Amino acid sequence: MATNLENPEELNERERVALETLLKRLADDEFVLAERYTEWQVRAPSLESDLALANIAQDELGHARLWYDVLGDVGLEERELVYERDPADFRHSTLVELPFEEGNWADAILRSYLYDVAEEIRLEALVDSTHPKIADRVGKIQSEEEYHLEHAQNWLERLADEGESHERLQKALDRLFPHALTLFEPVDHDVEEDIVDLGLRDATLEEMGEEWLSIVVPYLESLGLEVPVDGRVDDEDDEFEFEVTEEMLPEERGRDGTHTDAWVDLYDEFTHTYSDLGRTETTRIMDKPE
Score class of each variant (00 low, 15 high):
residue 119 E to K: 07
residue 64 A to E: 02
residue 64 A to S: 10
residue 7 N to P: 01
residue 71 L to N: 04
residue 92 H to F: 12
residue 179 H to I: 15
residue 40 W to F: 10
residue 118 A to T: 13
residue 112 S to P: 02
residue 36 R to K: 13
residue 147 Y to Q: 03
residue 274 Y to L: 11
residue 182 T to R: 09
residue 16 R to Q: 07
residue 203 A to G: 04
residue 201 R to I: 13
residue 97 E to L: 12
residue 184 F to R: 05
residue 96 V to H: 04
residue 22 L to F: 04
residue 12 N to T: 13
residue 131 H to S: 09
residue 34 A to T: 08
residue 206 E to L: 10
residue 212 W to I: 06
residue 88 A to V: 07
residue 168 R to Q: 12
residue 2 A to Q: 01
residue 196 V to H: 02
residue 14 R to D: 07
residue 184 F to N: 10
residue 178 P to S: 10
residue 154 N to A: 03
residue 22 L to E: 02
residue 192 E to G: 06
residue 192 E to S: 09
residue 256 D to Q: 10
residue 157 E to R: 00
residue 216 V to K: 02
residue 185 E to S: 12
residue 58 Q to D: 10
residue 98 L to N: 03
residue 221 E to I: 07
residue 117 V to T: 14
residue 33 L to F: 14
residue 244 V to N: 08
residue 83 Y to G: 07
residue 116 D to H: 09
residue 32 V to C: 11
residue 245 T to E: 07
residue 41 Q to A: 15
residue 253 R to V: 15
residue 255 R to T: 09
residue 190 D to Y: 05
residue 248 M to K: 02
residue 46 S to M: 08
residue 83 Y to I: 10
residue 91 R to S: 11
residue 136 D to G: 03
residue 250 P to V: 14
residue 32 V to F: 11
residue 176 L to Q: 02
residue 28 D to H: 07
residue 151 H to W: 13
residue 35 E to L: 11
residue 23 L to A: 06
residue 164 E to Y: 00
residue 257 G to I: 12
residue 257 G to P: 08
residue 98 L to V: 15
residue 32 V to M: 10
residue 95 L to P: 05
residue 273 T to L: 13
residue 65 R to D: 08
residue 176 L to H: 07
residue 86 D to S: 11
residue 44 A to Q: 05
residue 9 E to H: 08
residue 200 L to R: 01
residue 139 G to A: 14
residue 51 L to Y: 07
residue 214 S to K: 11
residue 145 E to C: 09
residue 171 K to D: 13
residue 263 W to T: 14
residue 38 T to Q: 08
residue 262 A to M: 09
residue 172 A to S: 15
residue 123 L to P: 05
